[in-house]
Simulated scan of single mutants.
Amino acid sequence: MAVAIKMKLNEKLYLRDPQETKLGRKIIQFSILMIDEIGFEDFTFKKLAERIESTEASVYRYFENKHRLLLFLLSWYWEWIKYCIDTKILNIDDPKRKLKIALETLVEAAHRDDPSTEHVDEAVLHRIVIAESAKGYYTKQVDKENQQGLFLTYKTLSLTLSSIILEINPKFPHPRSLASTLLEMAKSHIYFSEHLPSLTDIVFKDGNSESQVQKLLLDFAFGLLESSHFTIAEENIQSAAPLA
């Protein structure tokens, strides 16, 4: 039997940690499958309860509403991606190699299911991240939820990338912007290739665009970082601000 991995997430995402119980893990497992099947708009706790042969009230004991459930799933995903990246770059000293590994892992990990997380199919969850993640933070409640730390996993992953970027080029003026852009590109261009192909150069072929997206991220990141325009010293570069 695979060794289970539990992600440590903000307690405000849930009423009861679903990772701790059999029913909770079942809620996670089938909510991922159902949101992928029918979309977040049509997904309800009532439909989920019917699928897992439980009650709607039992689902509400874990999550206040389906928006919090979506934020939980997104947070779980980004924490898992960070775990994968941290594991692979742990003993790497060369920052360029670290960034290359990090960006490749960002794409590779998303396309496979990790057997150590039995209640989560990461490949399916990745499709949810691509299709539904914007609904997690493009809301009227975003500022309040940000103050509660509900987006911390995503921001921490972005900070990991921006730190590596500054290792490569300490004088690069936009490390956080580049980091968050790379994260957004990793999912948006897969979506574009399948649904809005004129917005990207990625060609969607049988759902396999992994190598193309990896090349896009690497070309974009290193093209900017190695540009002579950014190797000229800027005397008043601001130090990294705290996560907001």
Rank of each mutant, 00 (worst) to 15 (best):
Y191K: 01
A240H: 01
D201R: 10
D114K: 00
I27D: 10
L217M: 12
T117K: 15
I92E: 06
S116H: 05
L225V: 05
K47I: 01
H119N: 09
L196S: 05
L73A: 01
H111I: 09
I101Q: 06
P197Q: 11
A179E: 03
R68P: 02
Q238E: 15
L48K: 04
L125Y: 04
S177T: 07
L225R: 04
E53K: 10
L70A: 06
S75W: 10
V120I: 09
K26G: 05
Y60V: 12
G24S: 08
Q214G: 00
D114L: 00
M1S: 02
N208L: 08
I35V: 10
K12W: 07
Y83L: 14
D114N: 06
W76E: 11
S227Q: 13
S227K: 11
S228W: 11
L13Y: 00
G136P: 02
H126A: 11
K46D: 07
L74S: 08
H126W: 08
S209V: 14
N10Q: 12
S158W: 04
E194W: 12
T231D: 11
E104L: 05
L161H: 07
D93N: 15
S133L: 11
T160N: 15
N91V: 12
D113C: 12
S116P: 02
W78H: 03
L103H: 06
L159T: 04
S227P: 09
K47V: 06
T105H: 07
F30R: 13
L15E: 07
L33P: 08
L243C: 08
I81H: 00
D113K: 15
K12T: 00
D121L: 13
P95M: 03
A102K: 07
H67A: 01
V203Y: 05
T160Q: 15
S239H: 14
I190Q: 12
C84R: 13
T200M: 13
V203A: 07
K171Y: 00
T200H: 13
F172C: 14
D17F: 02
E234C: 14
L152M: 05
N236P: 05
D113A: 14
V59K: 02
I237S: 12
I81V: 07
M34A: 01
E145A: 04
L23K: 08
E79H: 02
R16L: 12
I92A: 03
K171G: 01
F40Q: 12
H174Q: 02
F204Q: 11
S162I: 10
S188N: 10
L224E: 10
A221Y: 02
I165H: 11
S228D: 14
H229D: 12
E11I: 00
N146V: 09
L225T: 05
S198A: 10
K12M: 06
Q148F: 05
V107H: 02
K6M: 14
F220G: 09
V59I: 12
A241H: 02
E235Q: 01
S31W: 03
F63P: 03
L73I: 06
I202A: 04
F43T: 10
D121T: 12
A109R: 10
I130D: 01
F151N: 07
S163D: 04
S162G: 08
L48P: 01
A179M: 03
L99Y: 12
T55L: 05
I232F: 11
Y137S: 15
I128C: 03
M1Y: 03
A102P: 04
D143M: 11
Y14W: 02
F63T: 06
K88I: 09
